[in-house]
């Protein structure tokens, strides 16, 4: 999922300071898992906006706001209310904000679509409702097969692909003594798997052009363009 956290309410309010009638759209996908989207978060935001003197004319909950057709499915039935709003506040990731903007454009509307959340990465959930961690940054050339299923590009603070730096101490990272050194985890895992020889394969510099943004995925043909 895409991890999200709330922006300070003052910042959200500032972004819509010129508008009175607003719609609140909360993603029912990833943001719901992060407790920043979904019904409860939408209701809370609507109440706070009302408390700040705004007129909340619409509340909506696309299943996954990042799928344009799901956002259409949620907003098409309430298209008139969308048109009544002067601005939309999105409780979703940056993708959700931009897909919603596209949907308003599809309706022929020119209206501000504002982000109420900050997106903080591709997260994997470890404890429901409590803890998620970044483990993959979609580098475009997965090396997990050589690293015991632990990604050094993401889990090493320096994205090192040829073993640990000098800052690895007692199995911990120099950036945060509470964080495991990814390379010690990889070493231990490869030892347990009997795959240590894979470390001998010196890895050449990564091809970061595979991460050059924005990437486009041709789903039909299964390739990045």
């Amino acid at each position: 999922m895409i991890g999200t956290v709330n922006k300070p309410f003052e910042e959200v309010l500032e972004s819509i300071s010129d508008y009175e009638r607003v719609g609140v759209i909360g993603c029912n996908g990833c943001a719901k898992v992060c407790k920043t989207g979904g019904e409860q978060a939408v209701d809370t935001m609507a109440e706070k906006l009302k408390g700040a003197g705004k007129d909340v004319v619409l509340k909506a909950l696309p299943d996954r706001t990042c799928y344009v057709y799901k956002t259409h499915a949620a907003l098409d039935p309430v298209k008139d209310e969308v048109a009544k709003a002067e601005a939309l506040v999105i409780l979703g990731c940056g993708g959700a904000v931009q897909i919603t903007r596209k949907v308003t454009e599809d309706y022929g509307l020119v209206m501000p679509v504002k982000a109420a959340l900050n997106s903080v990465g591709h997260m994997d959930t470890f404890i429901e409702g409590e803890l998620a961690m970044e483990q993959c940054q979609e580098c475009g050339d997965c090396m997990l097969n050589d690293t015991g299923g632990i990604c050094p590009v993401t889990k090493c603070a320096k994205s090192l692909v040829n073993g640990p730096c000098g800052g690895s101490q007692n199995g911990k990272c120099e950036v945060d003594p509470n964080r495991d050194c990814a390379w010690v985890l990889i070493y231990n895992r490869l030892t347990a798997l009997g795959e240590l020889d894979r470390l001998r394969k010196r890895l050449l510099a990564k091809d970061w052009s595979l991460m050059a943004r924005p990437r486009t995925l041709n789903i039909k043909e299964g390739r990045v363009e």
Binding site: V161, K206, W208
Partner: peptide
């Protein structure tokens, strides 16, 4: 790492590593 220094908000590069 940048986190240890005096410009903690900088974008770290680490395009390549010491071996490379």
């Amino acid at each position: 790492h940048i986190a240890l220094g005096d410009h903690k908000q900088a974008k770290a590069v680490f395009d390549i590593d010491s071996v490379q």
